[in-house]
Amino acid sequence: MKAYLSLIRIDLKLAFRQKVVIFFNLLMPLALFMIFAEINRTERSGGIGDVVTMVSVIGILGTGLFGAGMRAAQEREANVLRRYKVAPITPLPLLVASMVTGLAVYMPFVVLMLTVAHVRYGMNVPSNLVSVLVFIALGVTAIRSIGLIVGAVVNSTQESGILVQVLYMSMLFLSGATFPTQMFPAWLLKVSRFVPAAYIVNGLQSILLRHETLWTNWPGAAALLLTTAVGLLLSVKLFRWEKEEKLRPAAKLWLLAVLLPFALPGLWHLYTGA
């Protein structure tokens, strides 16, 4: 437990000492939110809740994939992880610390965004605020666990950058965070059923706009929770301390295993036509 607490403490300190972390996790999402909220107010194209949902998902994907996916590859390349390898610890405390740091860095932005949405744009305080925060937190841990697997399977920062970009862009557009899924052709709609971020968008819209609770959105919440657990387990299994330790190409397919919690409901939707 001492190792977990020490690693969480140092990870948090390091995160808040880096301007780039503050910029990408707080300032940039806040600027994006303000821009989209102003556009929304001018064009009256939809509710502020839609903007909150969209910016939340953009932030969750960013903090999860870029934050976790690229950092492990960078630290492995820089021989930082190698020093931990000779200490009596497993990869688990390092990964848990990364997960907790992701939450600690991102959640203050969510609170700030909801406050600005209320004070400046007149959004009602969500009746089920706890459900909103818990659902976003589940989204952060789920996407971050996918990021941790990316960090484990890539062989270089360059490779990590490519894979993270592919996942980020595809999840961003296919989830309905940027374009409403109603605009999607039928086949694309079916594809979106397999995208983890789509569950975050749908869940947030239900809780934020339709005043549902975490409980009524339990399938989505459970899928995110399961993804976190499977992602953590796999990232421990695939963890590499040194760049010289190469993975078999087939091991990268483990990345698909983390999508399993979404593949099953997706297949169910396809099967039932729902």
């Binding site: 930082v80 190698r82 020093r83």
Partner: peptide, 14 residues
């Protein structure tokens, strides 16, 4: 170790 490294923003005592 022969070659090792730490994050630039980590303090010595930390």
């Amino acid at each position: 170790l022969q070659s090792t490294n730490f994050p630039d923003k980590m303090r010595v005592r930390e």
